[in-house]
């Protein structure tokens, strides 16, 4: 059911991302998402970057509404529906977290919960440039190891985060990989984990409207991201010709290079 919450805090995380915190006692698990509505503007699906009573979503500057969300002032009321969808399975004892850009937002609460449950968590975090690396201060205290990559070489490995993830997968043993970022990146992470047979769980984004598994806007192959996801096993995704190639827009039309 929808309720109205006030934005309690607005935290600038990087030049392009802002976290909005609001108090909502609804129980949520890491990996789930909410529909957040800025009255007078759009309602958007956002994975929770904080899942406790003071929840949070971390918004990246993309499109008009996320721009509106970014600029929202503390005290502003927003409509919240959810949480919806499935969560990360927190039982693996050794986890590798691979975050691309703002994709790290949904992985952070999962990593914290796994760490609190006694699991070892290692991180490979990538971004275009050093100031865009999300949550490295938040996650470093939990990390068995935390490595960073940037496209421009301004911090850590100069190149793709998938290269860092491959090195970690080759040098260490993991029970699971959790990843979120561009679909091409997640595809490469899944390929890198294949030799060791490590299961890979990906958090996926699609255009969303009802969030109830009904309207079909977020159809992805035989799945609906809102109810079957947003966390999928990589095998489920790699079997779909559309993953990483095309998606549906608001009309349901296929868009993308492979459409």
């Amino acid at each position: 059911m929808r309720r109205v919450c006030r934005i309690e805090e607005r935290v600038v995380e990087t030049p392009s991302t802002v976290t909005l915190r609001f108090d909502d006692p609804t129980v949520a698990r890491p990996g789930q998402f909410v529909m957040i509505w800025v009255p007078g503007d759009d309602e958007l699906p956002m994975s929770l970057s904080y899942t406790g009573p003071r929840k949070g979503v971390t918004v990246k500057r993309m499109g008009d509404t996320s721009g509106h969300l970014l600029g929202i002032a503390p005290g502003t009321p927003v409509g919240i529906r959810g949480p919806y969808g499935g969560a990360f399975d927190l039982s693996p004892r050794r986890v590798l977290v691979v975050g691309g850009g703002s994709g790290t937002a949904v992985l952070a609460p999962a990593a914290e919960a796994a760490h609190a449950g006694g699991s070892e968590v290692s991180f490979a975090l990538g971004a275009t440039t050093a100031p865009e690396i999300l949550f490295s201060d938040r996650l470093r205290p939990l990390a068995k190891e935390l490595r960073v990559s940037t496209d421009d070489g301004s911090r850590g490995h100069h190149g793709f985060v998938t290269e860092v993830a491959s090195e970690l997968l080759a040098s260490d043993r993991f029970d699971a990989v959790w990843t979120c970022g561009p679909e091409v990146m997640m595809r490469k992470v899944a390929e890198a984990a294949r030799p060791s047979g490590t299961p890979v769980f990906c958090s996926v984004e699609r255009h969303m409207k009802c969030a109830l598994g009904m309207c079909d806007a977020c159809a992805l192959g035989p799945y609906h991201v809102c109810t079957d996801g947003p966390v999928f096993r990589s095998e489920e995704l790699l079997a779909l010709p559309e993953f990483g190639r095309w998606h549906r827009d608001a009309s349901g039309s296929r868009v993308g290079p492979g459409a």
Binding site: M1, R2, M35, W37, D42, E43, L44, G79, R81, K209, C210, A211, L212, C215, D249, A250, S251, G252, S253
Partner: peptide, 15 residues
Amino acid sequence: EPRPGYPNPTIEEYG
């Protein structure tokens, strides 16, 4: 023609 439909919110739930 392709039609995006209305902006969200497009749904209200009543249990």
